[in-house]
Simulated assay, not measured.
Amino acid sequence: MTTFDPHATPPAADTDLPAGEVADASPGNAYEALNEGDDPRWAYGTGFADPLAGVDTRVPDGVDAADLAAYCLMLGDDALVMSHRLQEWCTRAPELEEEVALANIALDLLGQARLLLSRAGTADGSGRDEDALAFLRDAGDFRNVRLAEAVNGDFGHAMARLLVFSTWRLALLGHLTGSRDPVLAAVAVKGVKELTYHRDYAAGWVVRLGDGTAYSRERMREGFAAVWPFVPELFVPHEVESRLVVAGVAADPATVRAEFDAVLDQVLTAATLTRPPGTGPAEPLGRAGTHTEALSTLLSELQDIARTHPEATW
């Protein structure tokens, strides 16, 4: 089980620099550095290294390629849709510092989505790349959990959802670090570091708001009330997940409920909050392509430019 302290200050975003050192701004200044690289798809170039360099991308022996692709779509769609909801907080968060934090969390999830969607396109032999899967599918073809797609509420709602989502996903990816699929294992190893920060960031705000003023406490309480009906769905495996669990590839979401509950109980206790009453459907609706109307609205915005200008580069 991942250790957790609800009173700890959330860690800074992950870097490779020793404490007290700052990055070298060469060449010259930050603007010049942005313009390095010659990838025409990016406004300023990237210079990014391939995070899967050296990883065996073949489908493991005995693993159904279609199931592997479907599973990667599930995890990739979760990250893509949740990333978009977090991006919507840009210019809307209570403070500039929180906008930066939420944008960085959204970028982490977008990075996970890119790797997982690319894996789905190569595993199923369709040749579809990450862009085709992100921009050219309709809502019924998406396999994300419905928690990710729900319309944004206030900041209390955002922190409740982020805490639930990141705690659940962190537990899943913790199990996936031992996946028989080398790509899933590599994505999980990196994702665990990112999601630990996401979870602790959200937990810090839940405690601060829940144990704050009467108004902030009420906003936090209502945030959890809105999120809680989507929780049961997170722990019911889809048939694809069940088959891949047997194959040693996937994580069984039912087995991470105890870890999820332990973390949520710690945070809610520290925030002087209780679990909301009531529950939602305990079936894998989003995994089966059954979504709320909110996803169609989200995709109309997410996919607009790509569909209006197909094959464009920028």
Rank of each mutant, 00 (worst) to 15 (best):
residue 98 E to T: 10
residue 100 V to L: 15
residue 103 A to R: 07
residue 104 N to S: 14
residue 105 I to N: 04
residue 105 I to H: 12
residue 106 A to G: 11
residue 106 A to C: 08
residue 107 L to G: 08
residue 108 D to A: 07
residue 110 L to C: 10
residue 111 G to S: 13
residue 112 Q to D: 14
residue 114 R to P: 01
residue 115 L to R: 09
residue 117 L to E: 05
residue 117 L to V: 07
residue 117 L to P: 06
residue 118 S to M: 03
residue 120 A to H: 06
residue 122 T to Y: 05
residue 122 T to R: 07
residue 123 A to T: 07
residue 124 D to I: 10
residue 125 G to A: 05
residue 126 S to D: 13
residue 126 S to Q: 07
residue 127 G to Q: 08
residue 128 R to F: 13
residue 128 R to A: 14
residue 128 R to D: 12
residue 131 D to W: 06
residue 134 A to P: 04
residue 135 F to G: 03
residue 136 L to C: 04
residue 136 L to Y: 15
residue 137 R to L: 13
residue 139 A to E: 02
residue 139 A to C: 00
residue 140 G to T: 05
residue 141 D to M: 01
residue 143 R to E: 03
residue 143 R to S: 00
residue 145 V to P: 01
residue 147 L to D: 02
residue 150 A to L: 11
residue 151 V to W: 01
residue 151 V to D: 11
residue 152 N to V: 04
residue 152 N to M: 06
residue 152 N to P: 05
residue 152 N to H: 02
residue 153 G to Y: 06
residue 154 D to S: 10
residue 154 D to Y: 09
residue 155 F to N: 04
residue 155 F to A: 08
residue 155 F to H: 07
residue 157 H to Q: 14
residue 157 H to G: 02
residue 158 A to T: 15
residue 161 R to S: 13
residue 161 R to E: 11
residue 161 R to G: 11
residue 162 L to S: 14
residue 162 L to W: 03
residue 162 L to E: 11
residue 163 L to C: 07
residue 164 V to P: 04
residue 167 T to D: 07
residue 167 T to E: 09
residue 167 T to V: 15
residue 168 W to Y: 14
residue 170 L to W: 01
residue 170 L to Q: 09
residue 175 H to Y: 13
residue 175 H to G: 06
